[in-house]
């Protein structure tokens, strides 16, 4: 009736499956090359990815030496990814792991700092993002370099594919070798 042999039908079915799954995979990977992020990076914000006043998450490393505590629970610091920096203002309780050189994810809005008049990220919540490296304190101490041992690689910006950044140290100085 259908004019197709069983074999031909099976071939057609396989073809449809391959086309469908392949198409879905293509669209999926296109999606991942666009923004699909839990958080944005300072580079994204400076490139104008978000309007002022939109609530969003910002991820990056707390720049060494930038942390300044004001009265009460207020703090000001600079958050950086591999390239750009963004001042952050926050008032509230900080996680134990929050310290300079540490990766953090802040929820908040892009705004203007009332004191300095600069573009600032005003955070309402700050979470610490630790990486997948575990070592005793003695080992960590022996690895320490001037730039800190935290990699900025987990903070991928929208514009560039992630693989370019894999293992790239935070500044020009190489990340401490680990062996």
């Amino acid at each position: 009736m259908s004019g197709l042999s069983k074999r031909q039908k099976r071939m057609a079915a396989v073809l449809v499956l391959v086309l469908g799954v392949g198409g879905a995979a293509f669209l999926g990977f296109t999606a991942f090359s666009k923004n699909m992020m839990y958080f944005y990076t300072p580079s994204d914000l400076l490139a104008g990815a978000a309007k002022e006043g939109a609530t969003l998450q910002l991820g990056g490393l707390v720049e060494k030496g930038s942390l300044r505590r004001e009265d009460g629970l207020k703090i000001v610091f600079v958050m950086a990814d591999c390239e750009k920096q963004m001042p952050v203002r926050y008032e509230g309780i900080l996680p134990d792991l929050f310290r300079e050189g540490q990766g953090v994810v802040a929820t908040g809005k892009l705004g203007i700092d009332p004191v300095t008049g600069e573009r600032t990220f005003v955070a309402s919540q700050i979470l610490a993002k630790h990486d997948e490296n575990y070592m005793p304190p003695q080992v960590a101490a022996s690895l320490k370099t001037a730039d800190g041992k935290h990699s900025c690689a987990p903070f991928k910006s929208l514009g560039r594919p992630a693989e370019n950044l894999a293992g790239k140290p935070m500044t020009a100085a190489a990340e401490a070798p680990r062996s």
Binding site: G23, A24, A25, F26, L27, G28, T30, A31, F32, K34, N35, M36, M37, A49, A50, K51, G53, A54, T55, L56, L158
Partner: peptide, 16 residues
């Protein structure tokens, strides 16, 4: 609504 890029989620929906 807040002016962020919408391509990623839309492509993912299309893939689904």
């Amino acid at each position: 609504q807040v002016g962020l890029s919408v391509e990623g989620p839309l492509y993912f929906l299309a893939a689904m």
